[in-house]
Write a protein that binds this DNA or RNA. Structure first.
Lengths: 155, 155
DNA sequence: ATACATTTAATGTATAAACATCTATTTATT
DNA sequence: AATAAATAGATGTTTATACATTAAATGTAT
C-alpha cells in the first residue's frame, strides 16, 4: 500500500503539481538521508564524512586538495576543513603538505578509511537498491529533469 | 547550457542510473533548500520555522497541538517544541493551554505571523516557479515515483 | 484505587552547521 | 622589488540539530 506524500505530511491538497513535487522532493530526500544516517551511525561517521571518504576513494590514492573536495561535495556549504579534521582524528584520512603550493593541503584516504568503506559498501548498496523499483529509463529521465531544474541558475 | 550533475559534482561516471539519481536527488534538494534559505534569511527565519508557520496558516486559526505539527513537518526529526519557542519569541505564534488534555499545548499563528507569510508569499511563489520548466504531467509522474520509493519502508 | 505504562512537551547536552574572520602564501599591479 | 589583491585553509562564534532524559498528565490493567 503506497503512502502518498499527502498522507505522510497530512496535507489534503496542493496548489499545483509543482508544489506537490517540491514538497515531495524535500520530504523524500530527508527520508533517504535519514535512512543513510541509520547505516552510518553504527560506524560513527556522518553522511558528510562518508561523502568525503567516497571522494577520497575515487581518487585511488592520488592526493586531492581540500578545495577540490569541496567542489565535489553534494553539500557545497560544508566546512571541508573540519570534516577532514574529523576523519584525521579517526585515522580514516591523512593530510600531506602540498609541495608546489604551500597554502594548499593534500588529503588521502588511509587503509583504515578504505576498510571502513568496504564494510559500509553492502549497506549502501542495499540502500541504493530501493531505487530499483524505478525503471532505469525513468531514473535517467528524472535525473535529466533535476539537471534542467538547476539550469535556471546559470543564465 | 545545462549543467549536469556530472559537472556539478565533478564525477565523470556513475555505477548506475540509480546512483546517478540518488546523488542528483540529494544534490538538487540541497540546492533548492539553499535557494529557500536565501529568501528566508532576510526575514530572519529558518526553513523549519517557515514550515511550521505554513502549517499554522493552513489551520486557519484552528489551534493545533505540537505533536500534530510534528506529524505534518517535512523533517520529522525536528524539535517542534523549540521551533515553536522561536516563533513565540518573535511574536509569530502563540501557545494556548489545551483544556481537554493538560499535557498538550495548542499553537496558533498570530497576526504578525500571517503578515510575515504574506510578505514571503511572492518570493516563495517565484522559487516554486522554477519547477515550471517541467510539464505538469512530468511533475505528477515524478511525485508518484518518489511516493513509490518511500513505499519500501512500510512492508 | 493503586501501580505501571504511555503520551506530550520541555529541557540538557554534545555535536554539527552557518557564517564571518584571520593567517599564511601566492599572484597581480605598479 | 614593493605593495595590493586574491586564494587556501584554519579558527571563532553563534545557532541549530540529534539524541537522550525528565516531568507532568493521561490511559490501562489488576
Amino acid at each position: 500500500m503506497i503512502m502518498s506524500i499527502e498522507t505522510d505530511i497530512k496535507q489534503k491538497k496542493f496548489r499545483s503539481p509543482y508544489q506537490r513535487l517540491a514538497l515531495n522532493l524535500v520530504y523524500t530526500t530527508n527520508w533517504l538521508e535519514y535512512k543513510q544516517l541509520e547505516i552510518f551511525k553504527d560506524y560513527d561517521i556522518t553522511s558528510q564524512q562518508y561523502n568525503v571518504l567516497r571522494i577520497l576513494r575515487g581518487q585511488k590514492s592520488v592526493p586531492i586538495k581540500v578545495s577540490e573536495i569541496t567542489e565535489r561535495m553534494l553539500d557545497k556549504n560544508s566546512n571541508t576543513s573540519r570534516l577532514v579534521d574529523k576523519l584525521l582524528a579517526k585515522n580514516l584520512a591523512e593530510r600531506k603538505s602540498c609541495p608546489n603550493d604551500r597554502r594548499a593541503v593534500d588529503v588521502v584516504i588511509t587503509k583504515e578509511g578504505l576498510e571502513l568503506l568496504e564494510k559500509l559498501d553492502p549497506f549502501v548498496e542495499e540502500w541504493e537498491n530501493r531505487f530499483n523499483i524505478i525503471s532505469p529509463e525513468d531514473a535517467e529521465r528524472i535525473s535529466a529533469l533535476l539537471d534542467k531544474l538547476r539550469e535556471s541558475d546559470n543564465q
